[in-house]
């Protein structure tokens, strides 16, 4: 059983969030990305023909709803890819590894710092979307959205889970990558397979029900935990310090 020190974890999370706030590119992407992912669902909902049958409307609103889930996939993958290789590039990794910080604390602390803004922004966008639907959408369309209980549940349950997947996969890439840009591209690619679940729901291969949403959420949680364990094992101080080639003093 690994023991985690709350003070050290808190220090990592606090520093990461502080660092994000000071990095203009991250702040800008955190503002623009949700807006970008909010536009398409809002437009889709407002152009939906309310004259269609309720079952057709129900199917129509699934894709715009699940589209917003991509915020929780895309945003963490780019941030997570920076976590290890970024520290190495800016020369801060070695001093960090000389402290009593454990590997698990490093991974969980960094991961939490990535997940917190990503999930919070996802939920904020969901909230804004639902508010817009409630206030401005045609009543028939609004009914279709709010009556899609399993999808709404999946949206809220899946956001932290797909974000978790993106984070652990992004960190796995970051541990082994030699450059930030390479890590971000690979991290983004590696995080996409999880969106397959979304696709299966959207195209109707899987019929969205409450049990299905919960079962998929549980499955994602298990996958996240297994991947987290694998990433913890990949975290090798020696490799991180000396890289693939031995350094000379």
């Amino acid at each position: 059983m690994m023991s985690l020190d709350a003070t050290r974890l808190r220090a990592v999370v606090h520093k990461e969030l502080l660092d994000y706030r000071r990095k203009r590119a991250i702040v800008v992407s955190m503002v623009l990305l949700p807006i970008l992912f909010l536009v398409e669902p809002v437009v889709s909902i407002f152009v939906a023909a309310p004259s269609e049958s309720s079952s057709a409307l129900d199917s129509f609103v699934i894709l715009p709803l699940l589209y917003m889930l991509l915020i929780a996939v895309v945003m963490p993958s780019t941030l997570a890819a920076f976590t290890v290789v970024g520290e190495r590039e800016q020369g801060t990794l070695e001093p960090l590894l000389t402290t009593p910080l454990r590997e698990q604390e490093f991974i969980i602390g960094k991961g939490a710092a990535v997940m917190i803004p990503s999930v919070a922004l996802s939920y904020l966008v969901y909230g804004l979307f639902l508010l817009a639907v409630e206030l401005f959408a045609h009543p028939a369309v609004a009914t279709a959205v709010f009556h899609n209980g399993p999808i709404l549940l999946a949206l809220f349950l899946f956001a932290p889970l797909v974000a978790g997947w993106s984070v652990v996969v992004g960190m796995a890439v970051s541990v082994r990558a030699s450059e930030v840009r390479v890590a971000q591209q690979l991290g983004m690619l590696a995080s996409l397979p999880i969106t397959g679940v979304v696709l299966l729901l959207a195209i109707g291969v899987i019929h969205p029900t409450f049990p299905v949403a919960i079962a998929f959420a549980a499955g994602l949680l298990v996958i996240d935990l297994i991947t987290l364990r694998i990433v913890s094992r990949m975290f090798d101080r020696e490799r991180l310090v000396i890289g693939t080639k031995a350094t000379r003093s």
């Binding site: 020190d5 003070t7 050290r8 220090a11 990592v12 606090h14 520093k15 402290t99 009593p100």
Partner: peptide
């Protein structure tokens, strides 16, 4: 802030 971070890492 740098020193606060490392103080935290030392518990």
């Amino acid at each position: 802030e740098n020193l606060e971070y490392f103080a935290g890492l030392y518990g």
